[in-house]
Design a protein around this nucleic acid. Structure first.
Lengths: 205, 205
DNA sequence: ATATCCATGTAATGCGTTACATGATTTG
DNA sequence: CAAATCATGTAACGCATTACATGGATAT
């Protein structure tokens, strides 16, 4: 159900085609919320049926059209209501931490590679998020501009502050993952330099 | 596919019934990896069919039996192989951060409640994880005892270190979430004390 | 005896991923 | 005119959640 509200959130800024939405969810915003087009198009159709959004055929090129969705009053109300309801916390399922817990089942080199991979992945995320964070704060982010245009100038600061705040959360999580993996690399160093390691098999049932 | 390896991981320590596994995944270990029984029983059957585990009917009470699964050599090999392969990173989809990004669509009190909820949730997680982390380090954790029994004493330290390391990751993530939400509360305080806020509606299309 | 574990499932539904498909428009 | 981009889907599959179901064993 969250994809629906992620879409409504996007549509509070400006009307979009399915393609536009899909592009956002796999571009820069996709680092925060990802969804494939095969999920987006049907969901938009369901949302239109539910009256949350309004799809208009607009001309595209000389002969063709595309369907552009705008949020309706009902959609705005639904989004606002969702914004007031607490979201359930889904049970933890962190597969990378699970794997790290069993590093005695692989060798130091593979374990090191996993952790390095972890660092690389989150370093890339971090870089992306920092760029977006900056573009939000200095008001060069195009979607933010579109969004703030609808509000009186006094409120821009808050709107910007909330978006920045959300990204700051992602940034600190990514940094935490990197720090953790780096501690893991140190742990592996300490272990590898000790004599006993990886006779590989347990001694018996 | 990860549930399969989470189950294999558990079974490297000791044989389990479906019920045992389900209990672990909703008890203390459930704060790291959760799965409902309706998923566990069929998966165990599939794993048995694949030869990764071996189910034996063992007596339970005077008249009844239960099925206890042990990991097979093939299962150990599969687990070891999985431990050597890098795990894909699934695209980010953090619904709480998404909601926080749009706090201008609700009022200060609801926003505050969301953040307080966030703090409470992760504080509870943190408390759980710290307890497990401690029980791993001081070797009172029963599953850890079962697990280390199979290995020579020289390796116990590493096995313990990896488990502790994994929990440390969860602990710092939970702490990061708490810190973030607390910053959010401060932000809301600053905003609430300023004059302009929540005339609620955008000025116009 | 009665409540609480222990034990094991089925069924419906929804969300998400991957793969398969197609065609128009714009840009170089 | 070829390539990249814009545009929109369908289909199959798997994983996860929720609800529905049942019954034996143990402890008080």
């Amino acid at each position: 159900m969250s994809l629906r509200y992620a879409l409504l959130a996007l549509l509070t800024a400006e009307p979009l085609t399915g393609y536009d939405a899909a592009k956002r969810f796999s571009g820069s915003v996709g680092h925060v919320w990802h969804a494939p087009d095969s999920q987006i198009y049907p969901e938009l159709r369901r949302m239109e049926q539910a009256g949350l959004i309004d799809g208009k055929q607009v001309p595209w090129g000389p002969r063709s059209t595309k369907k552009q969705y705008s949020i309706t009053d009902l959609g705005i109300e639904a989004f606002r209501e969702w914004m007031c309801t607490p979201i359930e916390y889904t049970p933890a399922r962190n597969v990378h931490h699970l794997q790290a817990a069993y590093f005695e089942w692989t060798d130091t080199e593979h374990a090191r590679a996993h952790l390095q991979n972890h660092i690389d992945y989150y370093a890339a995320q971090l870089a992306q998020w920092k760029i977006i964070h900056r573009s939000i704060l200095d008001r060069t982010n195009p979607t933010m501009v579109k969004r703030t245009e609808k509000y009186p100038a006094e409120q821009h600061e808050h709107i910007v502050a909330f978006k920045a705040f959300a990204y700051e959360g992602m940034i600190s999580l990514a940094q935490t993952e990197i720090d953790w993996a780096q501690k893991g690399l140190s742990l592996l160093d300490r272990i590898a330099s000790s004599d006993v390691f990886y006779t590989t098999e347990p001694t018996g049932q």
